[in-house]
């Protein structure tokens, strides 16, 4: 099965992100490109301009590719390093928004096929602006790095931790059964709360907390990455509204109709006029 976002029902309403993703990468055979003799000849005639690429690698603290410069092996290593560089957030080293979106699209596709439960958490540092304003941007950066470390420390290696915005993070937790969701999210929240961030002017600790919103991917149902993010975001909003330093997870996948709603369905005083 391969499909594009264009074929997803309901996308008109939730296409804020990820418009260009075709979540079918898993199905595709790995393509290896073997340069033709002509191409090699052409590259010898017009040498590749790699200075900037090498500078970028050096700046990010990565080693220079091993082997004979210009050889296929060396070029492959260089490309791999650039790919890694372009999928990471420069400040924290976490997955960046680009690779998060790619991973999310894959996970939506996987859940739809396998029916495995998967949880998406979106996290936001509480009162981050206040940290920046009070202690300066360097301290703010230190807080973000500390949060990143705390997040990585509190999840499994298979989970993807990403920085998706200024002080906004996300974690994709594949194969996370629903009863465990709240426990995991709570562990993440507490881990951040307890991690000391020594970023004050004299190295004194700054109190850092996060708010977390979470939603499970609808199992078996073809959904969209954007919709999933939107649902988790709504829960994050609730966590913020309810006082921050809190976890809010969307209620179970099966939709609940409250007795109040039932009553409203038959409440004749509710108004019977169709204004259509």
């Amino acid at each position: 099965m391969s499909w594009s976002v264009g074929a997803i029902p309901g996308r008109r309403h939730a296409d804020r992100l990820l418009d260009c993703f075709h979540p079918c990468q898993d199905d595709r055979p790995t393509t290896s490109f073997v340069p033709s003799p002509e191409a090699i000849q052409a590259s010898a005639a017009a040498p590749l301009q790699l200075e900037q690429a090498l500078q970028l690698l050096a700046q990010s603290g990565r080693p220079v590719p091993a082997g004979e410069p210009g050889s296929p092996g060396w070029l492959q290593e260089l490309i791999d390093a650039l790919v890694d560089l372009s999928s990471r957030d420069a400040l924290t080293g976490l997955a960046n928004r680009r690779s998060f979106e790619l991973a999310l699209a894959r996970e939506v596709d996987r859940v739809a096929r396998s029916g495995e439960p998967a949880l998406l958490l979106v996290l936001d540092v509480d009162h981050f602006k206040r940290v920046n304003d009070t202690f300066g941007h360097a301290a703010g950066d230190q807080v973000l790095r500390a949060v990143a470390t705390a997040l990585l420390d509190s999840v499994r290696p298979m989970d993807l931790v990403a920085r998706i915005g200024g002080e906004e993070f996300a974690i994709i937790l594949p194969n996370c059964p629903e009863p465990f969701g709240a426990t995991v999210a709570e562990r993440v929240r507490r881990r951040v709360e307890r991690a000391p961030v020594l970023a004050g002017p004299a190295g004194q600790p700054i109190e850092v907390t996060i708010s977390i919103g979470g939603a499970f991917a609808p199992q078996w149902v073809r959904s969209t990455p954007a919709l999933w993010v939107e649902r988790a975001d709504q829960q994050l909003y609730r966590a913020k509204a309810q006082g921050r330093n809190l976890v809010q997870l969307e209620a179970g996948a099966v939709c609940f109709v409250s007795s109040e709603e039932r009553q409203a369905l038959f409440d004749t005083t509710f108004g019977f006029e169709d204004l259509e």
């Binding site: 309901g10 309403h13 939107e230 099966v254 939709c255």
Partner: peptide, 11 residues
């Protein structure tokens, strides 16, 4: 309708 709106984004 509620399930379709919430899980499939149907509007």
């Amino acid at each position: 309708i509620k399930v379709l709106a919430t899980t499939q984004g149907r509007r």
